[in-house]
């Protein structure tokens, strides 16, 4: 017992003060990409050809990036000679709508409506389903339970039984072999229920889009309430997204 208390003192207090205090991210961290349409020469396709997942397209005159597909490999920014694409250090990337993930229609996630917030704002239980995830998204969701992030202080918990859950958090491109299990889990969750798609695989199929072995993400299968892009998203990106959805950060509570 004495040893345990002594170790406790040595380990110290390590829980972050997020969201009051901003997280520290490594210097090379690649956050939300930004497209400077004005800087784009418009006469080459280098970035589009370099992108392994076809996340970049030209909509009329505007170059646009789909964060729902982006792997954050940075090839586009490296290859662009006119500096039209850059990756910011902004870790906040979650959105409420699929279309909001495009750089030309970028919009951060908004909170659930007032009634939903009154029920789920301080108590949200999620069932996580890995449907072909590579264990990176799973690891960075799981890490929210460690004492650095301490997810439960926000009233958010991952539960074992779908019967106890208010929603499902999906990772992976939804393999054909996991389709039934995912849909059964979803069906076992009592309504009203939420769907959170974490990672480019769950949102669009990611690097696996087009493989006959996968469904290509949850889009069209489940009604998604929160999209958290990345490959994998940084834990802060995931936490920020979840807190925005339940209204614990965001416009509604400015200054928090």
């Amino acid at each position: 017992m004495y040893r345990i208390i002594k170790a406790r003192l040595k380990q110290g207090y390590n829980t972050s003060r997020f969201p009051q205090v901003e997280p520290v991210l490594p210097p090379l961290f690649m956050g939300r990409p930004e497209v400077d349409a004005g800087a784009c020469r418009g006469d080459c396709r280098d970035c589009m050809d370099a992108c392994p997942v076809g996340a970049i397209s030209r909509k009329g005159e505007t170059l646009s990036m789909d964060l729902g597909k982006c792997l954050f490999c940075g090839e586009c920014a490296r290859i662009c000679t006119s500096g039209a694409i850059s990756f910011s250090r902004d870790y906040r990337m979650a959105t409420s709508g699929r279309q909001d993930l495009s750089t030309d229609a970028w919009k951060l996630a908004t909170a659930l409506d007032a009634k939903a917030r009154s029920v789920f704002g301080h108590s949200l239980k999620l069932r996580q389903v890995s449907a072909g995830g590579c264990n990176a998204c799973e690891a960075d969701v799981n890490v929210l339970n460690t004492l650095t992030f301490d997810l439960s202080r926000f009233g958010i918990q991952f539960v074992a039984s779908p019967r106890h859950a208010d929603g499902v958090l999906v990772t992976g491109p939804v393999t054909k072999n996991m389709e039934v299990a995912l849909m059964k889990t979803m069906a076992a969750i009592p309504s009203p229920k939420f769907v959170v798609a974490v990672g480019s695989c769950a949102i669009s199929g990611g690097i696996f889009q087009g493989n006959e072995e996968v469904c290509g993400g949850v889009e069209g299968m489940l009604p998604v309430d929160l999209y958290i892009p990345g490959c994998p998203p940084n834990p802060w990106t995931i936490l920020d997204g979840l807190l925005r959805m339940v209204g614990q950060i965001g416009d509604r509570k400015k200054g928090r």
């Binding site: 890995s130 449907a131 072909g132 491109p173 393999t175 696996f208 493989n211 006959e212 996968v214």
Partner: peptide, 18 residues
């Protein structure tokens, strides 16, 4: 088998950069 994404065959279809 639930996680089978067809990686080995996809590698042969993809350019090396992908």
């Amino acid at each position: 088998g639930y996680q089978h994404r067809g990686i080995e065959r996809a590698i042969l279809r993809a350019p090396l950069g992908k």
